[in-house]
């Protein structure tokens, strides 16, 4: 599961160490926890390690984190393999995490997947030969109101359909970085066209009176 994306040949690097910049960030995380509870920082540290290492987490990095936190390496492996967000092998420059859970699926995630497949020539769990794109199918990303969604590395692209997915891929291939959020241009999760609710200011009745409650019921 955690090794979902294949395609890139790879070798486990022999060693890993945080760069001074990342080490400072790591120490800031460790400092958040009381003495003796440093192991709690394992998730943020693994995330930092993954960011430093082109979006994947080699075993040496897990060992390094274990060493920093005074944990047994196996305890770190357990965490790293549990969360699907850790990539245990190299992924493409743009990691497409396509949500296909029910709301996205109802809103047409099949077309999104199909567009990716067609455009990139690779299927779910694969990486394009040029190492630019990886496709991954994920469960709910928690943005159902703007379904369907693709998470590209850290950014959400929402309200996708076939053509807009292809356009997204084109833009990324050109080296552009399209603005994240709804590709239809809606503001966060506001209604798609015009505002449909809260169009008028309701008349306020005096607080606590029966009349107020009665009015609402009458509507």
């Amino acid at each position: 599961m955690s090794e979902a994306v294949e395609g890139l040949p790879f070798e486990q690097p022999a060693s890993f160490a945080f760069t001074p910049e990342y080490l400072a960030k790591a120490q800031a995380q460790i400092a958040k926890y009381p003495e003796g509870r440093q192991a709690s920082a394992v998730l943020p540290l693994l995330d930092l390690a993954q960011r430093q290492n082109d979006n994947w987490l080699p075993r040496a990095a897990m060992d390094h984190v274990a060493h920093l936190l005074g944990m047994a390496p196996i305890r770190v492996y357990e965490v790293a393999t549990f969360y699907t967000m850790f990539n245990l092998r190299p992924v493409g420059q743009h990691l497409f995490q396509i949500c296909t859970t029910t709301p996205c699926w109802l809103r047409g995630s099949d077309q999104v997947v199909e567009a990716c497949r067609k455009k990139l020539g690779v299927g779910i769990g694969q990486t394009t030969p040029d190492g630019k794109f990886s496709l991954m199918e994920v469960e709910c990303l928690g943005a159902c109101v703007n379904a369907p969604i693709i998470q590209v590395n850290d950014d959400f692209y929402e309200d996708l359909d076939g053509p807009s997915t292809e356009a997204l891929i084109d833009a990324l291939s050109r080296g552009e970085k399209p603005p994240m959020g709804s590709v239809k241009g809606r503001q966060t999760s506001a209604p798609e066209h015009a505002q449909k609710t809260l169009l008028e200011v309701p008349e306020r009745s005096a607080p606590g009176t029966q009349a107020g409650a009665g009015d609402r019921n009458a509507e």
């Binding site: 599961m1 955690s2 075993r59 047994a72 492996y77 357990e78 549990f82």
Partner: peptide, 19 residues
């Protein structure tokens, strides 16, 4: 010897030493 653990999750959970 903290060397054994459960890696992966759900259906893919495996008991072992990972390395």
């Amino acid at each position: 010897v903290e060397e054994m653990g459960a890696t992966g999750r759900g259906e893919s959970m495996e008991i072992g030493t990972y390395v």
